[in-house]
Nucleic acid binder design. Structure first.
Lengths: 343, 343
DNA sequence: CTGAAAGCGCTTACAG
DNA sequence: CTGAAAGCGCTTACAG
């Protein structure tokens, strides 16, 4: 039989009798025949591969993202090519170019620190935060912040320190903004922007949290579990019991969050759904596009662009009673440092 | 001019005059011409893409590995397609098949829990541990264990608890074996295999380390920073100061290890070199192979297959004097739990 | 319903 | 040193 018939039978494009399709399918399976991607790509202009670009591949969130994108992509018949830029913007631009040069059909970009998504000659799905222009889909970081704040508020906390590391990040600002929006009503929050990880010398870099406890802060709402881990260990080291004397919360539910002592209360993104929406929107744009027309790319849009975050409660001791509400009376400030027993 | 000349000029395959090459290069750059991978792949039988297979993509080591492999591969002109198997063996087999079906030129596999690398129709580089048959290149996990042990020994530790989570893992056994080989000489070690992460309920899962301290253990040599983190926070929570009352060490230098309090002493793999060697060996095998001959794949070999680990010392308090050597006298056992002040 | 033909863009012998 | 030709494996009109 002819190659054309085989092609039509395997792709189910019709115009082939049912029995022929059956016979061809069986023979193909028996021979282990798989159509060559190269031939198909050359003919159709589509490679069936999308690129995944993360400006900071060293981010501990990367496994979650990569896993979710890979699952969503392979479910739609796409492969995932990764590109790394090691935090550097020019390297990132080159990385994107390499992906384009490899004829990816589309790109999923998780930008940090303001990636330019212009001039890319293929559809692009952007995963950032709903308040960022051009965002395709993302977790509701603001809403996640609100959930964290409601939880802390219900525990009796009245003075909360928000800890982030990048005031230029939309994601971080939305998370912090969500927290403040709940605590802003007569209660007290302050924000501590700490050194980014890369700049930390290596021999630790204390955040001075014992002092913050002395000032009356009873909760540390960290913008990432990574910061929460720094906060938690520093507090523990200072002899301040968590969660009895101070609460620590994070974001992202990183892999170790459930297994440390005490386990972290955190807000988790539904990366599976986010990835599914991003890939679906991307695939739709790819299919609608003329593959031989090298137009300028613009971020694709999805119907649902904001995915709720899930609060995961693992620490839940009430705030130290003596400290509520503290910023009017400074009385309790000394009592909380008493627990310290550094040697 | 003809396509053949352009092809020869751009690939530098010679038989083109220098001035012609110059002119063609300039014009290509000006037009932004990039040869189509699809056409090339169809003609040469090579896609210029390698697959990266990790049985457990959620592993926090993944960013390090992916970054290193991506760098090495792109330096050699290769793209990296990722495949995930979410810890499941059958999913992993399918993931490998998908990569093969996409005509990858070769595979880099980081096996966990005994991956079968047989019957793969392309060259494969295996990154496991030097003592595993078929390993292409890996960190010297045994030697890393020895370095950790020497460090602990020099600090005066005489009773060390090794903590791992997978007795079936060659990597973990080599690390533990290296530690034991140093402490085996008259000193005491024991090994605690803890629940794998996936099986932990979520509300924490204490390892009972306070009890181990009471038994006279002064150091906890964890097979991964992930376990070290569990150990450290549990000890801190129990009021046992680290490193004064007990030392905690890890492996892998995961991203948070330098920034927690106290920072972790750990043994780091040189993933950059490992990746470079693995990719170089793989690329060599790919180039030597007839791309149209679908032979059975066997792991490729590299000249240098064992890369030293680097000890990163960040905690260095001496062992509690009263506890050396402890397993002959149980006197000090009670004094170390006194520090506990859980509420 | 099935098959013969054209052509996607490249590279590699081969001829000039 | 340069160019014309063939062909990698596929899919898509088109003809039968």
């Amino acid at each position: 039989m002819s190659a054309a018939t085989v092609s039509n039978a395997l792709s189910g494009k019709g115009r082939v009798s049912a029995e022929m399709v059956e016979k061809i399918r069986a023979t193909a399976a028996e021979l282990g025949y798989v159509p060559s991607q190269a031939g198909r790509a050359l003919r159709t202009g589509r490679t069936g591969v999308i690129g995944l670009v993360l400006p900071d591949i060293a981010n501990p969130l990367f496994p979650q993202i990569a896993q979710a994108i890979e699952l969503a992509a392979s479910s739609s018949g796409y492969g995932v090519l990764i590109a790394d830029s090691r935090g550097d913007v020019s390297t990132q631009t080159k990385a994107i170019e390499r992906l384009i040069d490899r004829d990816v059909d589309g790109l999923v970009i998780v930008p940090r620190r303001g990636t330019r998504v212009a001039d890319v000659g293929c559809p692009v799905a952007v995963i950032d935060t709903p308040s960022t222009p051009g965002n395709t889909v993302a977790a509701d970081h603001w809403g996640g912040g609100q959930q964290i704040a409601e939880h802390l508020k219900a525990l009796g906390h009245r003075r909360v320190l928000i800890i982030g590391n990048n005031p230029a990040s939309n994601v971080q600002n939305d998370r912090a903004g969500g927290i403040r929006s709940v605590f802003g009503q007569g209660l007290h929050t302050d924000t501590l922007w700490i050194e980014p990880l890369e700049k930390v010398s290596g021999k630790g870099c204390p955040l001075g949290l014992a002092g913050k406890v002395a000032e009356g802060y009873t909760a540390f709402a960290c913008i990432s579990d990574l910061h929460a881990l720094r906060a938690l260990t520093e507090l523990q080291r200072a002899g301040i019991n968590v969660p009895e004397k101070a609460s620590v919360t994070g974001f992202d539910d990183l892999i170790w969050s459930p297994v440390i002592t005490p386990a972290l209360t955190t807000a988790r993104m539904d990366m599976t759904e986010i990835a599914a929406i991003a890939v679906a929107a991307l695939v739709k744009a790819i299919r609608e596009r003329d593959p031989f027309d090298p137009e300028i790319g613009a971020p694709v849009t999805a119907e649902k662009s904001k995915v709720p975050m899930h609060l995961v409660v693992r620490q839940s001791a009430a705030a130290p009673p003596a400290l509520q509400p503290v910023h009017t009376t400074a009385t309790a400030a000394t009592s909380v440092t008493e627990g310290g027993h550094q040697s």
